[in-house]
């Protein structure tokens, strides 16, 4: 039951992206092209999504726990670090030059445009690389802290 509901949530998300036009990277790029062929549609997508998610999250998280799970996994961090800002900045450059972010790119895979497939493969490599990078960086920071404590 839990798996079926999760699959339906994915189907709703993908259908929402298609209905809103966001599965078309040209539409996303045009939102970002303020001085060219500007198309403000994306702001309506975000507005519509937030208008449902904001009261929806508030309502469902008033329960003690989710229907099919023992607890809510809500992010608790509130600090803005270099990692957050540099990651978002890098992500934005890729999003701008392609018009693709992860959700729409996965949704567009079945249409099998060459560019989509190249993007997805590269994106998966980039994600795995970032996971290795974070582990490596945390280890370096740990080593440094160890050396500092020996001084």
């Amino acid at each position: 039951m839990k798996n079926l509901v999760t699959l339906i949530a994915g189907l709703m998300f993908g259908t929402g992206l298609i209905l809103s036009g966001m599965a078309n990277p040209a539409k996303v790029q045009n939102f970002l092209d303020f001085f060219g062929t500007w198309d403000p549609s994306l702001s309506f997508v975000m507005g519509g999504a937030i208008a449902v998610t904001m009261p929806g999250f508030w309502l469902v998280t008033r329960r003690a726990n989710p229907f099919f799970h023992d607890m809510f996994h809500l992010p608790t961090r509130t600090d803005c670090d270099v990692r957050l800002v540099s990651g978002a900045a890098i992500f934005g450059v890729g999003w701008g030059i392609s018009g693709f972010c992860p959700g729409p790119a996965v949704t567009a895979v079945p249409m099998a445009a060459q560019g989509t497939i190249v993007f997805i493969v590269a994106m998966l490599i980039g994600m795995a690389a970032a996971k290795y990078f974070i582990i490596w960086r945390d280890r370096c920071v740990g080593d440094l802290a160890g050396k500092m404590s020996q001084l």
């Binding site: 540099s86 990651g87 978002a88 900045a89 890098i90 992500f91 934005g92 450059v93 890729g94 999003w95 030059i97 392609s98 693709f100 972010c101 992860p102 790119a105 190249v118 993007f119 997805i120 493969v121 590269a122 994106m123 998966l124 490599i125 980039g126 994600m127 795995a128 690389a129 970032a130 990078f133």
Partner: peptide, 8 residues
């Protein structure tokens, strides 16, 4: 773009 989106 894919590398940047994935990594970022």
């Amino acid at each position: 773009a894919g590398i940047l989106v994935g990594f970022g």
